[in-house]
């Protein structure tokens, strides 16, 4: 059943590094799985635990937060705070029976277009192996 499963993955990307890296992957025409949907935030530290949980509640199979490399955060420590939010979200997910591997923090610099594509690929593979999220989205099931 999971063989042709195409996961839906949300990537929260910080403006200064990750989102720029995603654009860079584009200008270098490096392809990655279309399963990844990007949401731009000013800083990875802006991503709320609630945003992550809402993503799962509404049908995402995986979520990752992408910030600047450690030490390079445009807002000094936002990426470190983001890693903490992600860890906390993973714990909450695990406590309700959702694999904590479905959520991840990644770091990359603005110039790393290739790495951005790699991460998208790795994440898609990982979630594909895990199968669909156990959360059933009412909007999806209604159809």
């Amino acid at each position: 059943m999971t063989t042709d499963f195409e996961p839906v993955i949300i990537a929260f990307c910080c403006h200064y590094c990750a989102y720029t890296a995603a654009d860079m992957a584009g200008s270098q025409r490096i392809s990655y799985p279309p399963n990844v949907q990007i949401i731009r935030v000013p800083c990875s530290g802006k991503v709320d635990i609630i945003h992550i949980l809402k993503a799962f509640e509404n049908g995402a199979d995986g979520v990752y937060v992408a910030g600047c490399l450690s030490g390079d955060c445009h807002f000094k420590t936002g990426n470190i705070k983001a890693a903490r939010h992600v860890a906390q979200a993973a714990k909450l997910l695990a406590s309700v029976g959702i694999e904590s591997d479905r959520v991840q923090m990644v770091n990359l610099s603005a110039g790393m277009g290739e790495r951005f594509a790699e991460i998208a690929m790795e994440m898609t593979e990982k979630i594909r192996k895990l199968g669909p999220s156990p959360v059933k989205n009412p909007i999806l099931t209604a159809n």
Binding site: V41, K46, H51, A55
Partner: peptide
């Protein structure tokens, strides 16, 4: 940066242009 907004337990802080309802609408839209 909006770090305060994401950490505020009472959701008393909003970052203009990136308010929670804007981010969530985008998320649901996707």
């Amino acid at each position: 940066c909006g770090v305060c907004a994401s950490e505020c337990p009472a959701k008393a802080i909003q970052l203009m242009r990136f308010e929670d309802d804007q981010i969530l609408s985008k998320l649901l839209g996707l």
